[in-house]
Write a protein that binds this DNA or RNA. Structure first.
Lengths: 133, 133
DNA sequence: ATACATTTTTTGCAGGTGCAAGCAAATGTT
DNA sequence: AACATTTGCTTGCACCTGCAAAAAATGTAT
């Protein structure tokens, strides 16, 4: 039943991260991570499919996720030359700014949540594995 | 960024488990786990709050989860004597049967999903940690 | 005893996700 | 050149979830 522990740790930490990001920066967890992926990508752009795989989400979820980011001015769509089916999502300057503001909050909350989970004997080994990778 | 790997592994494995349980047994992941918790509990019953904590879910989510299980005849509600606010959720015989049918599917799919994730070098250490606990 | 706070569950509401279907563009086949 | 297949993204729909507020019962303080 060790997978249950994995799921529990995931639920606890993600819930805390989501709360903090939403309250502090008006960002959902997937939105934060999408901005992170885009910021790391060359030219700050990724195709929908690449984003979906990087985030572990369905394509349709990414369509709407990108829609929200675009609505907020944090990314924009760019047509893909050479394959007019393709769509690039590009992070904007405002997007980079918002991300930069949120990163410290995220990192701090993640560390705190892991610290708290580490107090639970059943979760301790998993927390160690997360930290050690 | 090791927490990202954790999230990715979670997404991959849970999506596969959910697909298989839904297709093969008409059970959602939370429903399966709720049945598992109830089956393990003494007298096959738990209070809503206990279930919520065991599953890492919100209380309101558990209210509706239990509603679905009850609708399907897999559990029933029982009033708590001595505290008329409390509600016990009790697994039925039919619930135990459905769970017993689903367990082998779940276990097999979990092993397969972990095996597949183990092929990804970035996920390998985490998979090892899951197995080792 | 009454008033106030706390606990336990449920309900209204809105948000994020996946599946299946649809549409447009590209690729392959004859 | 024409048609079928595949690929990439978007939309319709339903489901599950969390938050905030409400309702019912319990506990506490004056």
């Amino acid at each position: 039943m060790s997978w249950n522990r994995f799921v529990l740790l995931h639920a606890q930490v993600e819930a805390e991260l989501a709360r903090v990001l939403q309250r502090g920066h008006g960002l959902g967890l997937s939105e934060y991570r999408a901005l992170g992926e885009l910021a790391e990508a060359s030219d700050g752009e990724l195709r929908m499919q690449e984003l979906a795989e990087a985030l572990g989400l369905n394509q349709s979820s990414v369509t709407r996720l990108v829609g929200r980011l675009e609505q907020a001015g944090l990314t924009r769509r760019d047509l893909c030359e050479g394959d007019r089916r393709g769509v690039y999502s590009v992070i904007t300057e405002e997007g980079r700014t918002r991300l930069a503001e949120a990163v410290p909050t995220y990192e701090r909350s993640l560390a705190a949540a892991l610290e708290q989970a580490d107090a639970d004997p059943a979760l301790k080994p998993l927390v160690a594995a997360v930290r050690g990778s």
